[in-house]
Nucleic acid binder design. Structure first.
Length: 390
DNA sequence: TCTGGGGTCCTAGGACCC
DNA sequence: TCTGGGGTCCTAGGACCC
């Protein structure tokens, strides 16, 4: 989906179309005040001048999505809001409306499933679709079906998307980036040299900043450079698994099947504080946050019907150093009290000398509740046995 | 100028078992 | 005398993705 979060916001506030708009910013909801000020009026009647600007933003958030108008100024996903504010102070900021985003996510996926039932979910705004057995899926190398999907999604939601068609997921993902927004791109096996090899290695889904840096230190900048190196060379420097994978990726080889369903492995909740907090000095407020995270996580698990045996905590200090500790139980848990107790044991072993900016709780090794004997779930401990760390 | 939140997968060392 | 090989589980960190 093209600039998904921002596009969803523009459906609500069409008067902002064409203006630089940035979505993100964490808990703070900059349009709360707006909603109060214009209560009772149609949202589309709120003048663009009334919206909050990036230059007035203060906080620790990052950008989730920027509109194409905002991207012209060099701002983009994952950039800190304060940095973005210097690059494009006049951009309008809106928070992510998660409920609305999830609603449109379900809508566009339903449209696709009606047309092509073999679909793999890749998060809120992305899917893989198998065209193979869809009637007409091969016409004009898939262009006809791609166009039908775009048109159907647009009619149902008002949103645009970009489609890449290729022999496998790796190439299709790259192809989908070629012609944004609202584009279609087709990559055939024989296009590898002309369309894929000139691209920077970073364009491979699975090559991030660290590997990209290491590659460029080896003089490998484009995917063609990568393809020119031997498998052994790459295995020697990147390990058996990743090295061999890099080599295959450069040659456009990918035999991963489409996964139409999957079971969750972990669930977590974490929060970055508005100001750094210290384990001793801010004991009470940290303790309250800790308990709240456990309650939210338990609610998530119960709502989705899962329990897990490994409970982890995550902390990040003022120097952005992250540490995790975990505790594995004999039986899976899904209650706030049991999670809090196990997380407390893990937290006791964590380094807590420095001020903290983030605290998180995670449950791993999940098992569907339906697959569990009720008796396997650890009963909530009595109040008196709770460990109060902070 | 600091850098969200929710995930998956991989690596590597150590304990422990046969 | 100086010490196997294989397997599983647990723990911690890290790369990467949306």
């Amino acid at each position: 989906m093209d600039a998904f979060f921002a596009s969803v916001a523009l459906l609500r506030y069409p008067q902002l179309k064409g203006l630089p708009l940035v979505i993100g910013g964490g808990r703070r909801a900059p349009d709360d005040a707006l909603a109060r000020r214009f209560a009772g009026q149609p949202l589309a009647d709120i003048p663009a001048e009334a919206f909050p600007l990036l230059k007035d933003y203060t906080g620790r958030g990052v950008i989730t999505t920027a509109t194409y108008a905002a991207r012209q100024f060099g701002v983009g996903s994952a950039m800190g809001m304060m940095k973005a504010a210097r690059l494009c102070p006049q951009a309008i900021v809106l928070p992510v409306d998660f409920e609305e985003v999830r609603r449109y996510s379900r809508m566009f996926k339903e449209v696709i499933l009606e047309i092509a039932p073999q679909m793999q979910d890749r998060g809120v705004d992305e899917v893989y679709i198998d065209f193979t057995d869809v009637p007409g899926g091969q016409r004009q190398s898939g262009r006809v079906l791609a166009r039908l999907i775009q048109k159907s999604i647009h009619e149902a939601t008002g949103l645009t998307c970009s489609v890449g068609v290729a022999p496998n997921k790796l190439l299709a993902k790259m192809a989908s980036e070629f012609n944004k927004p609202n584009g279609i791109s087709i990559v055939h096996e024989q296009d590898l040299q002309s369309m894929i090899w000139p691209l920077p290695c970073r364009k491979i889904n699975g090559v991030g900043p660290k590997s990209d840096l290491k590659l460029s230190e080896l003089g490998i900048h484009t995917i063609g450079d990568l393809a020119a190196r031997s498998r052994d060379f790459l295995v020697d420097r990147f390990g058996q698994s990743y090295g061999a994978w890099l080599h295959d990726a450069a040659w456009g080889r990918d035999d991963r099947p489409l996964e139409t369903s999957s079971e969750p492995v972990s669930m977590s909740r974490e929060t970055t504080f508005e100001r750094d907090l210290h384990a001793v000095h801010d004991k009470e407020v940290l303790g309250a946050i800790f308990t709240r995270l456990c309650e939210q996580l338990a609610a998530d698990l119960q709502r989705k019907g899962y329990a897990g045996r490994t409970v982890s905590i995550k902390i990040r200090d003022d120097q952005f150093k992250t540490a995790t500790r975990n505790h594995t139980l004999a039986a899976p848990v899904d209650t706030a009290a049991a999670i809090r107790r196990a997380a407390g044991l893990a937290l006791k072993r964590a380094p807590l000398a420095r001020p903290l900016r983030l605290l998180g709780v995670k449950v791993d090794a999940l098992i569907a509740r339906s697959a569990l004997d009720q008796a396997d779930l650890v009963a909530a401990p009595p109040e008196s046995s709770q460990i109060n760390l902070f």
